[in-house]
Simulated scan of single mutants.
Amino acid sequence: MPAITIDSLRKEYGDAVAVDDLSLTVERGEVFGFLGPNGAGKSTTIDTLLGYVRPTAGTVTILGHDAVAESRAIRQRVGVLPDGYALYERLTAREHLKLAASFRAADDDPEAVLERVGLVDAADRRAGNFSKGMTQRLALGMALVGDPDVLLFDEPSTGLDPTGVAELRRIVAEEAAGGTTVFFSSHDLAQVEATCDRVAILGDGRLLAVDTVAGLRDRYGASVTLSIEATPLPDSDVLGSIEGVRGVSLEDDRLVCRCRDAESKVRALRAVFDADVEVFDVDTESASLEDLFAASVGDDAPPSASAPSATVTAETGGTQ
């Protein structure tokens, strides 16, 4: 049984359609990124998963429970870290965790949870004095109480410093290794890329893509950057005529050659190595999820560092 199944979900608010015919399956133990620009329908989908919003059409199930009819059962098995979480200002961190445990009839040791999220030294401080990052850490700790089978995170890295982000990644990896499904929405695409097994991208309420990051790279193409220190530079018309090469341009004494995929990258590199130049170095980079996201939502600008890419420094040994 999948952890999450969304089947033909549609949500309307009057004449506005927030989510349109969304179907998605998330497997148990998977770390799944849920992405999209503002207004894409991410929050509506998450609220539907938790039973806070009733769908206009379609069904949503978590761990076999219907999100409409069995929302109470779902919330007993799901840990939630919402965006902009508000704490009780008069309660301490320890008291917040005890409260979360009481809601789930759990017996988690507050000290152990606080240690895990890096707040053990603030166990008896009132939350009203917490920084934004400390608030986020405590909210994460509350989501972990009761050893949930599914974790739903909405912008989990908000307010966290680099150390906090690294700790969040560690916790996500630990939870997934233990069989917990992690489903999260985030604008921090580097965080998503570093942690997720697959990602889904929404736009205007519709599913635009769902795949691994590697699969998205294959779908949206790749580029090669040949940075050549040579006089004269290799013939741009020759490189531009290679199958799969999308474009060639001169940028600050570098010849930039963008290619569709890894195969066209190899063809472009071979053309450089076959030219009368001496190659000093080759660096290969991968497209960032930010580039792939821009491509999926229809950004007109081509990816600036699409995968796989290579930087070649060369010096001519004669005229071309």
Results as ranks from 00 to 15, higher is better:
Glu27Met: 13
Gly64Leu: 01
Glu167Ser: 13
Thr231Val: 15
Gly205Asp: 01
Ser223Trp: 05
Met1Phe: 05
Glu243Thr: 05
Val60Asp: 04
His96Lys: 01
Arg267Ala: 14
Gly118Val: 06
Leu151Ile: 10
Thr48Val: 10
Leu292Ile: 11
Asp109Trp: 10
Leu140Asp: 07
Gly64Trp: 06
Gly221Pro: 12
Asp235Tyr: 06
Gly159Val: 07
Leu202Thr: 05
Ala123Gly: 08
Gly39Pro: 06
Leu9Gln: 05
Thr316Asp: 12
Val80Cys: 07
Ala86Cys: 11
Ala190His: 07
Gly215Arg: 00
Glu30Phe: 06
Gly179Phe: 03
Pro308Asp: 02
Ser8Trp: 00
Ile4Phe: 02
Thr195Met: 13
Gly41Phe: 07
Glu70Ser: 08
Ser8Tyr: 00
Gly298Asn: 12
Leu160Gln: 12
Val238Met: 06
Phe280Gln: 09
Arg270Met: 09
Pro308Trp: 04
Gln320Val: 15
Arg116Cys: 02
Asp253His: 14
Glu27Leu: 14
Val256Trp: 09
Val60Leu: 07
Pro303Asp: 09
Gly203Ile: 07
Ala105Ser: 15
Ala73Met: 11
Arg270Asn: 11
Glu251Cys: 11
Ile6His: 08
Ser309Lys: 14
Arg267Ser: 09
Val272Thr: 00
Glu243Leu: 05
Val182Gln: 09
Arg198Gln: 04
Ala143Thr: 03
Thr135Asn: 15
Val68Met: 12
Thr44Val: 10
Ala16Ser: 13
Gly128Tyr: 03
Leu226Asn: 00
Asp300Arg: 11
Ser43Tyr: 02
Gly14Gln: 08
His96Tyr: 00
Leu144His: 05
Leu208Cys: 11
Leu35His: 00
Asp197Met: 06
Glu175Asp: 10
Tyr85Ile: 03
Asp197Leu: 03
Thr61Ala: 12
Ala67Leu: 11
His96Trp: 07
Gly164Thr: 04
Phe103Leu: 15
Asp154Cys: 01
Pro2Met: 02
Gly318Ile: 05
Leu24Met: 11
Gly247Leu: 00
Leu168Asn: 08
Gly141Tyr: 09
Gly64Phe: 04
Phe130Lys: 12
Pro162Asp: 03
Pro162Ala: 06
Leu22Tyr: 04
Glu315Ile: 13
Asp20Gln: 07
Asp161Arg: 01
Gly178Glu: 13
Glu115Tyr: 02
Asp261Trp: 04
Ser71Cys: 12
Thr212Leu: 08
Asp15Met: 04
Ile74Thr: 12
Arg104Ser: 11
Arg104Val: 03
Asp15Pro: 09
Glu243His: 13
Asp291Gln: 09
Pro302Ser: 03
Arg75Gln: 10
Lys132Asp: 08
Lys42Leu: 09
Asp66His: 09
Ser309Tyr: 08
Ala166Lys: 15
Ala214Phe: 04
Glu278Met: 10
Asp109Leu: 08
Pro308Met: 08
Ala177Arg: 15
Arg94Gln: 07
Val150Met: 13
Val26Tyr: 01
Asn129Thr: 15
His96Glu: 05
Gly179Arg: 04
Gly41Gln: 03
Val199Ser: 03
Phe184Arg: 08
Glu229Pro: 02
Asp253Val: 04
Arg246His: 12
Ala275Trp: 13
Phe32Trp: 02
Ser304Tyr: 08
Val145Phe: 01
Pro302Gly: 03
